[in-house]
Design a protein around this nucleic acid. Structure first.
Lengths: 343, 343
DNA sequence: TACTGAAATGTAACCGGTTACACAAACAAA
DNA sequence: TTTGTTTGTGTAACCGGTTACATTTCAGTA
């Protein structure tokens, strides 16, 4: 493959351009940065020379001199879950608009890894950090504090946390979801959720659900893998059991998808026999059959908000805010009044 | 929020550490790079001093001196489609293992944007580039060529393309999918696909499908938005029409999901009344009802392969290969023999 | 003891931009 | 004409690491 490295002549730099134009490096640099203190004529000349020489500025040199990299790092559990992917998509969009680059590192949810990866992105020169959740190893917090690294924790809102958080109130939403089902008359609800370990968002949602249950409702808690298969497997077990729930609340839409399919497979009609509710509002949720009642999380807004917060801090040194984003319960056809056979 | 910037004392550098230990910068640098030419005792002393001073190396300076950034950029249409997200997840994993960082830029499928974003990541110092597809503006190709930038085009395999490609043979797979349906006796097949503009993968798949049809099969081609809603809308139209297809081939699983739901909604039984086939094998495909027959694309393998190719080029200067990855038709329950009422 | 080569350390010149400060030219005001 | 201001450009010292090459240290050997 056309390997192109001309080992002979090395890349032109500002000094090369300066020499070629008979101007000084300062002027060349000024052109590079769009300074107003260059005569139009001179500017044109410099630009022409740059094009001529195939000049390309060196990012590292610039970063060294300005002490700025214009790079933000996101250290998150995974890209494989669309909720993170959608979030980062929005982050990237907003950062790009404002002239920042996004580097991504994944941890698979492991705090140990998180620590390591943050170290790596710092060594790469990231100026800002995006984390997921508000549970982080103390050594990580120390590192962030020590370096004065602007950081925001996402997918969660907790004004009392050491670091700024931008997200929603997971516990309140969990509670709201369950109260909605209770309001429909459901008295026995299964709650299907992903692993609790190293996932404070899920823990909080579950806590909220439990609080919402009170004495009005019996809960069957099922922890499973965070994918559709997990949802399907849990459902099979639940529907075979002696005390069937009248509703299944999924703490994530991917689980709900599996639940939905498995319910159908088992011959249950949704929502007549079984109400199903999700969490996220992924894009198929409005389209599935029946359309899924779910909590719409403002993933994209969260992404933009996070990016803006960091850039505002870096560019306009405003403070990093705690932001609470509103989520909405979207009522669709997968939930209905419990038909009260046993009440 | 605890803004920490001590404007007074500035950050320690190698020289600070050197002074503190009474050693020279060279030795400090050697410790930093794990050189074997430092006495154990000395090394320990330096490390202690670094810890003491909260020393953190400066990435830009290092990059400037070594002319290496150990950064790879991926410039892709979006992160919102799980197929890209899963791919990049694998890329990130593999890159991290080998000490490289991943920066991501999205283009929303716009070639113009692609050009711009590549320029940006280059100015950021990316040493390698990952693109999607094998259709790129000539100016972009020139830029890549001119800078000698190692680049791989993914999701596609085309040994004749200027740039190395790592992916599968989209046309052959499209053909294979349709031949499978024809083999089941389907003679009228609807093909639902996302936008063709700026998406050569879809174009190729479609081309393969058409070739596969020959005279054995009538095709109804439907272009729609690349999401479940698109799948659902297309299906409604198809099933209302006078000449109903006996099978729907979706050139992407997200479409198939919408199709599946809409078919159910319209009261069609899958696969008895209608066979449905997808493309990708997303994680719910094995779990849905009925489980989806689809072409499994080796997304994760492609990610690892891409990362390895670039790193091998950069670290061991091996050539960038063209790689053809095998995909597999996974036969599940959403497809069945056509019941031949009209033949 | 003197000699030799390997191991450990030091010196200083890079890498390629930015920018404070100095300086010259042009022009206005006095 | 002199002085002051604005505008455009140049000089050279940074930024904070790396590394070629020089130098010292030290063990092993003749």
């Amino acid at each position: 493959m056309t390997k192109q490295r001309r080992t002979t002549e090395k890349k032109p730099g500002v000094r090369t351009v300066a020499a070629a134009t008979g101007l000084s490096v300062a002027t060349v640099s000024r052109v590079l940065n769009g300074s107003t203190l260059v005569r139009e004529e001179t500017r044109a000349q410099v630009i022409a020379s740059m094009r001529e020489l195939d000049y390309a500025p060196n990012a590292a040199a610039r970063a060294l001199a300005t002490r700025r990299t214009r790079t933000i790092a996101a250290v998150i559990p995974t890209l494989s879950h669309s909720i993170f992917a959608r979030f980062l998509n929005a982050v990237e969009l907003a950062l790009a608009e404002r002239g920042y680059a996004l580097v991504i590192a994944t941890t698979d949810g492991d705090p140990q890894q998180e620590m390591v990866r943050v170290g790596e992105v710092l060594n790469m020169g990231a100026e800002g950090l995006i984390l997921s959740g508000a549970t982080h190893p103390p050594e990580l917090l120390r590192l962030i504090e020590q370096r004065g690294l602007p950081t925001v924790c996402t997918s969660i809102h907790d004004p009392r946390y050491v670091l700024p958080t931008i997200g929603y109130d997971n516990a309140a939403l969990g509670r709201e979801a369950l109260r909605y089902l209770i309001g429909l008359g459901h008295r026995r609800v299964a709650v299907v959720h992903g692993p609790l370990e190293n996932n404070d968002r899920t823990v909080l949602r579950l806590k909220g659900v439990k609080r919402g249950a009170g004495k009005d409702c019996v809960l069957d808690l099922v922890e499973t893998s965070l994918d559709s298969e997990g949802g399907a497997l849990s459902t099979r077990r639940l529907l075979e059991g002696p005390e069937r729930p009248t509703a299944i609340l999924c703490l994530s839409d991917v689980l709900a998808l599996g639940v939905l399919f498995e319910a159908r497979r088992s011959g249950f009609s949704v929502p007549a026999d079984l109400s199903i509710m999700g969490f996220d509002d992924l894009d198929w949720a409005a389209v599935c059959e029946p359309p899924l009642t779910t909590l719409r999380l403002p993933t994209a807004r969260m992404g933009r908000c996070t990016a803006d917060a960091l850039v505002d801090y870096l560019d306009n040194d405003s403070e990093l805010p705690h932001v609470k984003l509103k989520a909405a319960l979207v009522e669709r056809a997968s939930t209905a009044k419990a038909n009260g056979p046993r009440q």
